[in-house]
Amino acid sequence: MAALRGPGTDPRPMDARALAALAANPGCRRRALLDAAGVDKGAVAETLGAPARFGQSRFAFSRGHAFEARVKRDDCAELLRLLGVRGPGLDGTEVEGEPAGDVAVEVPELGAPGPEGRVLRTRLALAEATPGVWTLLDHPLLALDVAGSTAYLEPDAVAIAPDGRWTVVEIKSFPILDGGADAMKVGAAARQAAVYVLALDAIEAGRGRTDVLLVCPKDFSNLPTAEWVDVRKQLAVTRRQLARLTRIEEIAAALPAGTTFDLGYSPDGRTVTRPVAELSAAVESVPAAYAPECLSTCELAFHCRDRSRAEGRVDALGRGLRGDLGELTTVEAVLSAASGLTGDPADPAVSSLRRAAALRSEALSEAAKQGTPA
């Protein structure tokens, strides 16, 4: 992996967002390999002349950090309230039926040298949580095996309830307006949280809850509010898709000898010295599975789209159409099959294309007879 990203280049960690995107497109060997090797795909795409046009602005990044700090201030009192923990030490009022006195909460120290050390400290904290007491793990580090490569994942928080159940907490800066949030953003957060639940299941199956706490600002204020989000569907899909991934060593073994994605920075670290043609050849040596959905999740998506269009592949038209066309993988092959020049008439895709071509021809003839513009 170090040789693939280049000597002396620090690996770019694979986070839950990247892992969720990979699970949504398990057939893309290019993304799987580059993510496993820790290659900076954004820098590669910029060098190839197709930089990604998405990402979080500095303002949004700062706002997110400020909101998370508010949620966790005062020994995480606000977060405990959102988790449903009640007591005079949290909301300043006595609750009928609840015992008086402060709620006992433990926040263990998770610092350790290196990711392996942090993962071990997290595992120890999960195992040593005191029964009958709330325990909060602030930015724990989890490890998950992905096609033979280890991904390190850092949720915002994991709460351990007095009954021993583990709850993933996701803190996002997008608002919950009138009791509801943007469906696409909630869906993305759910897929990301499902990855964390999967990593917790790898430690001890059944301890992690399948509903996660999504914490967001309320309306247009900075006041935290929360929703419980059921991620059972996302968890099942992620588990199934990750199991379908080709193992990283198999993908790497199929590469030409000497393949590397090293950008060859100058000594001052500011200039890329690797010829673009060489880097492009290295990237193209790994099969990709481009789909329009990649444009919002992968830094190399614009490069892959340009190549797909240049080769006349149907991938650029969407996964649904690509699946319907079966073995017809190029626009040229589709047009040839539709015109009857190639293709097996027994193939459902070919039969449908020829039927569509006949209907189109009939419609154009009728329009010509009536003098209607086509």
Rank of each mutant, 00 (worst) to 15 (best):
A21W: 01
C216V: 10
G87N: 13
T329K: 05
W134P: 13
D262L: 02
G64P: 05
A157H: 14
S365T: 15
I203L: 10
D156Y: 12
R30C: 04
R12P: 01
D211I: 11
V95H: 15
L359T: 07
G49D: 08
V286D: 05
S221L: 00
V39H: 10
H139S: 15
L48P: 01
D182M: 04
R63G: 00
F220E: 13
A161E: 08
P99H: 14
A243E: 15
A358M: 11
E78F: 14
A60R: 13
A349T: 03
G55V: 05
G87A: 08
D35L: 15
A346N: 13
L263I: 00
V107N: 02
R70D: 09
V85N: 12
P348W: 08
D347R: 05
A104K: 14
D74C: 06
L4S: 01
S173V: 09
T273E: 00
G320F: 00
A16G: 07
E106Y: 13
G318R: 00
A190E: 08
A338T: 03
R165V: 14
A288I: 02
T150R: 15
V231T: 07
A252W: 08
N25W: 03
R118M: 10
F220D: 15
E106H: 15
R121Y: 07
A60T: 12
L124W: 06
A69R: 14
D74S: 15
R313G: 02
F302Q: 09
F67T: 08
C298L: 11
N25A: 15
L177I: 14
A363I: 10
L255Q: 08
G92K: 06
P26K: 11
A23W: 04
R307H: 01
Q56T: 15
V276S: 06
R307S: 03
L223G: 04
V231C: 11
V146I: 10
T167K: 04
P217T: 02
S280Q: 13
L136G: 09
R360E: 04
A43L: 05
R30Y: 06
T330N: 00
E98A: 14
A188F: 06
A52T: 07
P7L: 09
F59I: 12
A161D: 08
S339E: 00
R53V: 13
T238E: 02
G258Q: 04
W134Q: 03
D178N: 09
A37L: 02
A23D: 01
L144C: 14
T225R: 13
T246R: 13
V334Y: 07
D35T: 14
V158E: 09
A356H: 14
R319P: 00
V276G: 00
G27M: 02
G6D: 01
P267E: 06
L213A: 00
E78V: 12
S351V: 04
R31W: 01
V71A: 02
W228H: 12
C304P: 00
G49C: 02
P131A: 11
G164L: 07
A194L: 10
D163N: 11
E362T: 09
A236D: 14
Q370H: 07
K172H: 11
R53H: 08
L19D: 02
E362C: 12
P11M: 04
A202H: 09
V334S: 01
L33P: 01
V197T: 04
G55A: 09
A37T: 13
W166S: 11
